[in-house]
Design a protein around this nucleic acid. Structure first.
Lengths: 189, 189
DNA sequence: AACGATACGGAACGACGTTCCGGTTGTCGA
DNA sequence: TCGACAACCGGAACGTCGTTCCGTATCGTT
């Protein structure tokens, strides 16, 4: 991967960028489940164009948040190197992931796999982040700071689930609950 | 509440029961988000009839699971009386709640509030169960077994969220993760 | 300038939740 | 028993959504 194969037409490249920008704006206001037509209108293109560039809605979401997911992934090793203990690094990294999810309307809700069609998004995000989480988790387990019988995949899904619906309910503080879950990771006495 | 006010027509009562039975069957196979038309067909009625008896889909879901929610609510005080410690009672009760959610396809996913229109279901379930949970939580807090800075509402929502998508993913064990969360409730050392 | 490949726009399709209304059927008083 | 009226029913119809399809416009090249 690297070179964009044969070189596409100028209008195609222009429209792809317009769509990404429009989608990002619409997502902020109306959540990741905003109607496709709204995104197309905002970008000034037809609905057909959106599907030519992003075969499924999940592909569009992936593209919009690609950079942020990448940044989160890269923060993992950095935190491990700069934190006092592996457990502290894990806790901070998960905080960062939670911040990402909570600030994107409805993104967490779409991370769950049961809605067919979002498998691609599910896989894309998790494929990138689970190994990072696994490294932090393993380091903490090796240091005896957490129990060692939990998969990173399971932890990531749990954190994602805990973030669902956290945007519009002042009585529900996802950050705190994730903190509780992470606290529950410590080895039983 | 108690007496069904003026006494409805016989066919109305018959259809309501047929609808409840049909919905329960369809929910098992296709989840609580099964198409309304499927339920109407299975019950042998038109789609209009379903909305006359249950103004919104949430009302139908509430009616279908009313008995099980009630049973779960009643188990709370019983567990508190029969368990060794309040914390054990809380843990068992939450296990029971998790069993309920996990065995109903997609029910947990619909407990989150962000989908407008499911507010009624959200409120109905939580209004009944949050006080029960609060009593267990308070008892455990009073015994010094758990930290005391968490609302029952928040805990219930967290447990509900953790159960989302637990049916169709063998790599995700909601019961265990809820267990971890409950473990995280213990006071910090 | 002219041509072929490429990409565009938006009408069209099917599925869904929900509403509406003409026809039917229970119920109750006479 | 019977008629009339309110209650109730079925399913067609509407609006919204994601997605597909195809006639047309545009780009890049010769």
């Amino acid at each position: 991967m690297g070179g964009q194969s044969p070189r596409r037409r100028a209008d195609a490249r222009r429209n792809e960028k317009a769509l990404l920008d429009a989608a990002a704006e619409v997502f902020v206001g109306a959540g990741v489940n905003a109607p496709v037509r709204d995104i197309a209108t905002r970008a000034g293109v037809g609905t057909g164009t959106i599907y030519r560039h992003f075969p499924t809605r999940a592909d569009l979401i992936i593209a919009v948040y690609r950079h942020q997911v990448e940044a989160c992934a890269e923060a993992g090793p950095a935190l491990l190197a700069s934190s006092d203990t592996p457990y502290a690094a894990l806790a901070h990294w998960i905080d960062r992931f939670v911040d990402f999810l909570v600030t994107k309307h409805g993104l967490a809700a779409v991370l769950r796999s049961d809605d067919a069609g979002f498998d691609a998004l599910h896989a894309s995000f998790l494929d990138r982040l689970v190994p990072v989480c696994a490294r932090l988790l393993d380091a903490a387990a090796a240091a005896g700071e957490v129990r060692s019988d939990l998969e990173a995949y399971e932890l990531m899904r749990a954190v994602g689930n805990l973030c669902i619906g956290a945007e519009d309910d002042p009585r529900y503080d996802a950050r705190r609950l994730v903190g509780l879950l992470v606290a529950g990771l410590r080895p039983s006495p």
